[in-house]
């Protein structure tokens, strides 16, 4: 009936939707959608470094190195902000730095570069048990930290001056948000790839923000839009022979376009 790969793909879509609803919504609220793209590309450098380490020194899962690299990317953005740098400039600098490293590492691993390049596209229907386990671990981490720090993160991104005046350090909570974005983005790479991670994290949240009445509704609706997009993407991929993540991205964008019909 259902192949194990299809079941994994469906589980992955549910987990992706949770990430899209939480992290995606807060990226949109914070106005840091460029960070998602920056981290996704930065992860490529981490994966290439992981492959280089595995080939030269010891066995290591490239995606875990990518995760570590992306978390460092997020912490660096926090540090730049602490130094009063504009957040977009900080992301741009780290983006350029990690892409330069990506090219450097890819040229060092030559014939194995295709493994790292595989992250560019990703495939929902080719996920292994390890990929699902990593996704589950990431989602649990994100949801737990999100539940604990949700209100402080919200205060920090809504009104950083007042938050600070009350003794809440916005720089810590914004950096925490960036780290959660990094974890979310990297855990999705194997599923949807570097380019489409943006589509599935940002577009559902952007669409729901246009029609939802409050934050909870926005998060709930972003989950539903991401879920519908992912499941429809898988379903349509049986009829049109293309990667389901690309179809999911198109569905999500179509739903976003439909929100303009709402007056």
């Amino acid at each position: 009936m259902f192949s194990i790969f299809l079941i994994r793909a469906i589980i992955a879509v549910i987990l992706i939707s949770i990430v899209a609803a939480t992290i995606g919504s807060f990226s949109v609220f914070r106005g840091s959608t460029f960070l998602v793209s920056g981290i996704a590309h930065g992860a490529l450098a981490g994966a290439a470094l992981g492959i280089y380490i595995a080939l030269t020194f010891f066995s290591v899962e490239p995606l875990l190195v990518a995760m570590l690299f992306s978390v460092l990317f997020a912490l660096s953005i926090g540090y730049f902000m602490y130094q009063k740098e504009n957040v977009d400039v900080a992301i741009g600098i780290m983006f350029a730095f990690s892409m330069s490293l990506a090219v450097l590492f890819l040229s060092m691993i030559r014939e194995y570069a295709s493994v790292a390049w595989g992250l560019i596209i990703g495939d929902l229907l080719l996920l292994t048990e390890d990929d699902i386990n990593l996704l589950i671990a990431s989602v649990i981490t994100i949801v737990l930290l999100f539940l604990i720090f949700y209100r402080k993160i919200l205060f920090s991104i809504f009104d950083p001056d007042s938050a600070e005046a009350m003794g809440i350090r916005p720089i810590y909570y914004e950096t925490l948000l960036f780290v959660l974005i990094a974890i979310g983005v990297v855990s999705l790479l194997k599923c949807v790839g570097v380019i489409l991670v943006y589509a599935l994290l940002i577009v559902p949240a952007a669409a729901s923000k246009r029609i939802a009445g409050n934050i909870s509704a926005c998060i709930g609706l972003a989950f539903i839009i991401a879920l519908i997009s992912g499941l429809l993407g898988i379903y349509l991929s049986f009829f049109i022979s293309v990667a389901p993540s690309s179809l999911a991205g198109l569905v999500a964008t179509a739903i976003y376009a439909l929100t303009f019909l709402k007056r």
Binding site: V28, F29, R30, G31, L154, I157, F158, D159, P160, D161, S162, A165, K209, A212, G213, N214, I215, A217, C218
Partner: peptide, 12 residues
């Protein structure tokens, strides 16, 4: 604080 510093991009 000055209202300009408030993030009104949040459906709060």
């Amino acid at each position: 604080p000055q209202r300009e510093r408030i993030n009104t991009n949040i459906p709060i």
